[in-house]
Design a protein around this nucleic acid. Structure first.
Lengths: 164, 164
DNA sequence: TATTGTTATACTCTATAACTATA
DNA sequence: TATAGTTATAGAGTATAACAATA
């Protein structure tokens, strides 16, 4: 089987399984990405957060709203520019981030159960080279942009009508 | 970086790039999966096709409608059970399938440009073992089921109101 | 009564444009 | 005039229920 098909297939499977493990924490994969990014760069604006994660501003608002409502993220007015917020993790947010880390390690172990330690290292090395050559941002899941094709509406002829 | 994150990241990238290469043919990834499945088992019913590809019947109808409208797929009444259609590729459908194959090989070469021949074989071997251990169907992309978490509507407080 | 294909509908995510407050 | 954040809305994809024809 072609490596790129296997990558797409296992990658989608990995993303789904990770989302399943995250669900009991009440978090989605975008939530985890947001908490991780804020944890790595406290004070980030929504603008730059959205750019880093390739999440549209209009969607980011809703995601941050929810994380703020649940007390994991805090929006502070920037003293330099009153248009922007500085995003910070609360204590609960930091605990959530740690839980995400534990979840990720469990997920990793389960997904790579077929491989021993040195094989996992070999796999990571190969994947890292591909990621670099393809110009992928380290630590940033690209999400899934719009990609379908544009097609005209089809004229339907029914199975809900007698055929004989 | 953890292998499972790299897998999800590169997998999503691979899926997007493949969709981009398919777009000039006027096809989406599900279209390609459908043509491939019908090509491998001519006469398949929509029911079994949907099961194999994990596409819901209500969506499959629309996809097959469009492929039939474009003359790539033909629905023939089953002589044994008047409820079902037998799905077949037309000549144009077979040509489309060949074009998809060429596209997939180009995609594969581009995605794995960082690796030489023996490294690609090594990668495929590792990935195949993971796919088997994880119980993934050979040749079937799992798509992306519903996985977000359920959250109550948030009470918004606006940046569109004066803050001072 | 169960099944195949189909339609209708709801919810989520992606995407774009327009809007408010501020620079 | 441009920018950060927000709102509204349109377009896909996912999911469920209900329906007609047939088994």
């Amino acid at each position: 089987m072609s490596p790129s098909f296997l990558l797409a297939q296992i990658g989608a499977h990995a993303a789904m399984k990770f989302a399943e493990r995250l669900a009991p924490l009440g978090l989605s994969p975008p939530d985890a990405g947001i908490l991780r990014a804020i944890g790595a760069s406290a004070g980030l604006s929504q603008k730059r957060l959205g750019e880093r994660l390739s999440i549209l501003p209009s969607r980011l608002v809703v995601l941050v709203d929810e994380l703020e409502r649940r007390g994991l993220v805090e929006r502070r007015d920037s003293p330099e520019d009153r248009r922007v917020y500085e995003l910070h993790l609360t204590d609960a947010g930091r605990r959530a981030l740690e839980a995400i880390g534990r979840t990720a390690r469990q997920h990793d172990a389960a997904l790579c159960a077929a491989l021993d330690e040195s094989e996992r290292a070999e796999l990571s090395a190969l994947l890292t080279r591909i990621a670099e050559e393809q110009g992928l941002e380290p630590g940033v899941h690209p999400g899934f942009k719009r990609l379908g094709k544009t097609a005209q509406p089809a004229t339907r002829r029914g199975k809900t009508e007698p055929r004989a």
